[in-house]
């Protein structure tokens, strides 16, 4: 119970800091948001019109009061109105986020499907040809620029073999973008899991488990995997937030309308409410991902008190 309370407190502090920071980042702009907004309404706003808008939007008040107001309305689910689309920011995000979420979830699925068997075989057959292949492939995979890979895939499948309609709206069309998005994370996580598996396979408890007569499958799945997963879980949950933003590149290549491109467009148009909203959502997802990882890891390994054992590197 005390642990739960402490976790909640830590979560609230982090969320508070995250919102404050994202508000600050969006508001240290050298562009006057009131002016930007005025330009949106009038072609050539006069000085009075700008001042009026500034008063209306509460931009004349000190920053911390603006923050409190913004936080208050954010808590009520009101993130303001997009300057670009004139819709509420929430409805815009509600429209774009699912597309990106689909993309990211599918990418994560690929990563899981790839990581566990590949790193397991590589670790069990250390120094075999397969292991060497995996090592080279993961180093290459981690060095591949996402945007370039995207184009290669596009060129190879859409142009050379136009069997699948690459740019479309259904689930099949998500296959290639999600694979491209998954490549770096898959490389990192295969490397990470292989290393933790190897160090666990050499531990005393594996030798003793064999001496107790347990079968290899049982040792690997019941004991070694369980001990090797926590770093991977942490990597995963931390990566979700990054993938949401990182999907901007993939979305741009495959012409998808997700939250990544939405955010980039908003920045280009200096659409502050939208930027604020997107940043907030992405950061929140990151924070919750982390908390989720903590909870899962606590279950996997009850002794793990220190949640920062592995950072993704």
């Amino acid at each position: 119970m005390v642990v739960f309370f402490k976790r909640c407190r830590a979560l609230i502090i982090t969320l508070f800091g995250v919102t404050a920071l994202s508000f600050l980042m969006a508001n240290i702009s050298i562009v006057d948001p009131a002016e930007a907004y005025a330009r949106n309404i009038f072609l050539h706003p006069t000085e009075e019109q700008i001042v009026q808008i500034r008063n209306e939007m509460g931009l004349d008040q000190p920053l911390y009061e603006q923050y409190i107001q913004w936080l208050g309305s954010s808590l009520r689910g009101d993130l303001g109105i997009s300057l670009q689309t004139k819709n509420t920011v929430v409805s815009d995000i509600g429209q774009k986020l699912p597309i990106t979420m689909q993309l990211v979830s599918l990418a994560l699925l690929w990563v899981v499907v790839l990581t566990i068997p590949v790193s397991l075989v590589a670790a069990l057959r250390q120094n075999s040809w397969f292991d060497h292949l995996v090592r080279v492939a993961t180093i290459l995979g981690a060095s591949l620029p996402n945007f370039w890979l995207g184009f290669l895939v596009l060129l190879f499948f859409a142009v050379t073999f136009p069997i699948v309609e690459v740019v479309d709206g259904n689930l099949v069309s998500l296959v290639f973008p999600s694979l491209v998005l998954a490549t770096p994370l898959a490389s990192i996580s295969i490397r990470l899991l292989r290393a933790t598996l190897l160090s666990n396979l050499n531990k005393d408890y594996v030798t003793y488990a064999k001496a107790r007569g347990l079968r290899n499958g049982r040792i690997v799945w019941g004991h070694v995997m369980r001990n090797s997963l926590p770093p991977l879980v942490m990597l995963f949950c931390q990566y979700i937030g990054h993938m949401l933003a990182g999907s901007a590149i993939v979305e741009s290549i495959f012409s998808m309308q997700g939250i990544g491109t939405h955010l980039v467009d908003a920045i280009m148009a200096r659409d502050l409410p939208t930027v604020n909203g997107c940043v907030l959502i992405i950061a929140m997802i990151f924070v919750f991902g982390r908390t989720l990882a903590d909870i899962i890891n606590k279950r996997l390994n009850p002794r793990m008190i220190n949640r920062d054992e592995v950072l993704y590197d």
Binding site: K203, D204, Y205, A211, G222, R226, N227, P302, R303
Partner: peptide, 12 residues
């Protein structure tokens, strides 16, 4: 075993 402290899987 030689070292009973490390012989069991610590998470089970």
């Amino acid at each position: 075993v030689q070292n009973p402290m490390t012989a069991f899987n610590p998470t089970v």
